[in-house]
């Protein structure tokens, strides 16, 4: 992605603010922007949640479908998380096949929930040759920085909002949904950006443009569940250990925010 002159000017501005230990919106270095979670916005989906994080806006929808188990795991169902950068979310996003950026976002969002064993895939097994497939699609509606955390929290909230279709006489009735999808674990995500010598949580759009390195840490309060380091820059061991500590602290806040809205 070619950096435009107007971006260069923003980068310089962000850096000059950080030199004074300040952020453009006067947040603390490890503060999230305002987060709003609205579950259950899409009734046709088995579960859904909209998450607003500053100017970032994402929508997660869950569809649960009857399908054949994979041949290598005949006794369990399947789960897939996919994130899509809609072209209406930012002028730099275009229609067409997913970009490497979108694929990374999809896979990191998937990894946190999968590694966190949030869904017991064995519980999705129905009978021989039949199991539930859980599809979580996260739509990025407005890009305002830090999609990783917004998407993970939206996906998690949508799962907690999900109800199971009924299965009777070999047929699925989507209109009749009673039981909640069983969720075993709640993971939350925290993404840090390194800009020059500063490290900060929840980068805004401008701060992302200025970022040298990025670290996403997913945890469930007792274990780290997934991590992803991105961009050219680097982190030292000490920095990573410190950020993981912050990630655990933030988990408490984020988890209660997610649970409050379910």
């Amino acid at each position: 992605m070619k950096m435009e002159s107007i971006d260069m000017i923003k980068v310089n501005y962000i850096k000059s603010m950080l030199a004074k230990n300040m952020r453009e919106d006067s947040r603390g270095m490890f503060d999230f922007r305002n987060m709003r979670i609205t579950p259950g916005t899409m009734g046709n989906a088995e579960g859904s949640a909209q998450v607003e994080l500053g100017r970032t806006k994402v929508l997660a929808g869950v569809k649960i479908a009857l399908e054949a188990p994979m041949t290598d795991t005949p006794d369990q169902g399947n789960m897939t998380v996919a994130a899509e950068l809609l072209p209406l979310a930012h002028s730099k996003y275009e229609s067409g096949p997913p970009t490497p950026e979108a694929i990374e976002l999809s896979r990191v969002t998937d990894r946190g929930i999968r590694a966190g064993s949030c869904i017991d895939l064995k519980s999705l097994f129905i009978e021989e040759g039949k199991a539930w497939g859980v599809y979580i699609d996260v739509y990025v509606l407005n890009y305002g920085g830090n999609l990783f955390d917004a998407c993970e929290i939206a996906a998690m909230s949508a799962l907690l909002n999900s109800t199971m279709p009924t299965y009777e006489d070999g047929k699925v009735i989507h209109e009749n949904r009673k039981n909640r999808l069983k969720i075993d674990n709640i993971v939350t995500s925290t993404t840090f950006a390194k800009i020059g010598g500063s490290i900060l949580l929840d980068p805004s759009l401008d701060e992302e443009i200025a970022s040298d390195a990025r670290l996403t840490v997913t945890n469930d309060g007792s274990s780290i569940r997934s991590m992803q380091k991105g961009l050219r820059g680097s982190f030292y061991q000490k920095e990573i250990e410190e950020l993981v500590g912050i990630s655990f602290n933030k988990h408490v806040e984020l988890k209660s925010l997610i649970e409050k809205r379910v």
Binding site: G61, V62, K63
Partner: peptide, 10 residues
């Protein structure tokens, strides 16, 4: 969207 329908995953 893949979740726009009541029935299948699009």
């Amino acid at each position: 969207s893949p979740f726009s329908n009541l029935s299948e995953h699009g």
